[in-house]
Design a protein around this nucleic acid. Structure first.
Length: 470
RNA sequence: GUGCCCCUAGCUCAAUCGGUUAGAGCGCCGGUCUGUGGAACCGGAGGUUACGGGUUCAAUCCCCGUGGGGCACCCCA
């Protein structure tokens, strides 16, 4: 931070840290609209809200993320404690599950919408402070919990109007079986996983090159690629895998999980085009133990918008007693990138639905007599608020109507209500639609209803009723 | 974290080969205009050319560093 000299006065240069953002009202309106829909879907599926502190003991966060741990924000607090900003919402949940084990009804389903921090280099859809929207279930080893998380995410993306998306599903044990089948020791497996995960991006030949470049024999590389590229229906692919992994009980368990999971997804009615077995998909975080999920988009180029999986060992790392858990996480900013790209959710520009103008009034001599007009406007705005409308009054009674219209116009307030002497005498309120300039008069008593009707004509039922039907 | 590109008014961009007082459009503020906006006209504010240093008689321009942004990689939501 540098200081500057502004008009003889020292001033701090207002500046943001790289990868951190302010959200101005326009952006907040869109964000809140999206979050509102997510919350709605989460609660519809019975997930309960949870929040936890931004800051945790560093030890809580370390050893969970593998190589990514280098992105963890950590430092000493005033008491010299080693602390860190949460890197995701999953580890804090595991900590909560261990700490409050006696207070939670299992299976415990929670959603958590909150910022997380990663010391990554910013790019489109990638920030150092960003919001994750998680749904997780603690205490159920059943694939039902995984299926529910997947169904929830599918429904959320549908509700947001995502043009097309596929939830890719794989299993941690199948992934590690890959290395085993290829005859690669567990330590070197990471490089295989990472290379394989890029198959959609760089193609099989690219993966082969990368594997060989990393010291994997050509024959082994081919075997891995062969497995990962199994084609056909899900059932056929799993059957084929079962055959090839006949002597690897671990992999067989993974195959069973997935067979069950796919059955449950069908039973839940998740549209078939929205999920698929993807044997090349790998998740980087260390804590996954079972099924893993990911939703990636090609357009815009922001990578994955959601990811998750089962982590049956994570809670045990806090409590010493393994408790199964699984969940799915959506990345708000990446979802917003998609929404902007396809213009899926035109958000209102302003929270206010109506601006009550303050009409200046003069007495017979032409002297200012502002109080009556102001009082009338205040009474009206209060009335509208009591009727449940989002109404504001222009906060400067010395301005003319012209300025007040300009204000409404700039701010995007769709309606302006005018209650001057003339209207008061006739018991009406004049209502102006700022988009078209059209004016209507409504009896004072019925004004709120007329405004609601007006808004409905302008924006459809959605804008006024907040309740969204699928 | 690595590499490359970028940064001039609130926004989008100008400014000859390094040349003297850094301009325009839009926006903003005020006025023409006491009850009708997004039009027009007039006027105004707003810049240490991101910041710091260096080279030079002279730097928006060349060099170095810092900060911020973008792209690719790494990785990831």
């Amino acid at each position: 931070m540098t200081e500057t000299d502004k008009g003889g006065r020292k001033a701090l240069r207002p500046q943001l840290l790289s990868g951190f953002r302010d959200f101005l009202p326009q952006q907040m309106l869109l964000r809140q609209q999206v979050l509102g829909r997510l919350r709605e879907v989460f609660e519809r599926h019975g997930y309960e809200p949870l929040d936890t502190p931004a800051l945790e003991y560093a030890a809580t966060l370390t050893g969970k993320y593998g190589e990514d741990e280098k992105l963890l924000y950590r430092f000493q607090d005033h008491g010299g404690r080693e602390v860190g900003l949460r890197y995701d919402l999953t580890v804090p949940l595991a900590r909560v599950a261990a700490l409050h084990a006696n207070d939670l009804v299992l299976p415990f389903k929670r959603y958590h919408i909150a910022p997380v921090w990663r010391g990554d280099r910013p790019q489109r859809g990638r920030f150092r402070e960003f919001y994750q929207c998680d749904v997780d279930t603690v205490g159920s080893p059943s694939m039902l919990a995984d299926a529910e998380a997947i169904a929830t995410v599918a429904e959320a993306l549908q509700l947001l109007g995502f043009p097309e998306f596929t939830i890719q599903i794989n299993h941690r044990r199948i992934v590690s079986g890959l290395a085993r089948l290829a005859g690669v020791p567990e330590e070197g497996a990471g490089t295989i996983y990472r290379a394989v995960d890029k198959i959609e991006k760089i193609g099989p030949a690219g993966v082969r090159d990368e594997l060989i470049a990393r010291g994997i024999g050509a024959d082994v590389a081919d075997r891995v690629l062969d497995l990962v590229q199994l084609r056909g229906g899900t059932a056929e692919m799993l059957a084929e895998l079962r055959e090839r992994a006949a002597n690897l009980p671990e992999v067989l368990g993974g195959i069973e999980d997935l067979e069950r999971l796919f059955g449950l997804l069908a039973a839940l009615g998740v549209p078939r085009e929205h999920y698929a077995l993807q044997l090349s998909m790998v998740r980087g975080l260390d804590y996954y133990t079972g099924p893993i999920f990911e939703v990636a988009v090609e357009r815009p180029k922001v990578g994955s918008v959601a990811a998750g999986g089962r982590y049956d060992g994570l809670i045990g790392s806090f409590s010493g007693r393994d408790v199964p858990a699984t969940g799915f996480s959506l990345g708000l900013e990446r979802i917003l990138e998609v929404i902007k790209e396809f213009d899926l959710l035109p958000a209102p520009r302003s929270v206010a639905q109506v601006l009550v103008a303050v009409v200046r009034e003069r007495d017979a001599d032409g002297a200012a007599a502002p109080d009556e007009g102001t009082a009338a406007a205040l009474a009206l705005v209060t009335e509208l608020r009591e009727a449940g409308l989002r109404a504001e009054v222009y906060l400067n009674e010395r301005r003319g109507l012209r300025d007040q219209f300009t204000y409404a116009n700039r701010k995007g307030v769709p309606l302006v209500a005018i209650l001057g002497e003339d209207e008061r005498a006739r018991g009406v309120v004049k209502l102006k639609d700022m988009a078209t300039g059209e004016e209507r008069e409504a009896p004072r008593a019925a004004l709120a209803r007329v405004i609601e009707q007006f808004l409905e004509e302008l924006y459809g039922a959605e804008a006024t009723t907040k309740r969204l039907q699928q």
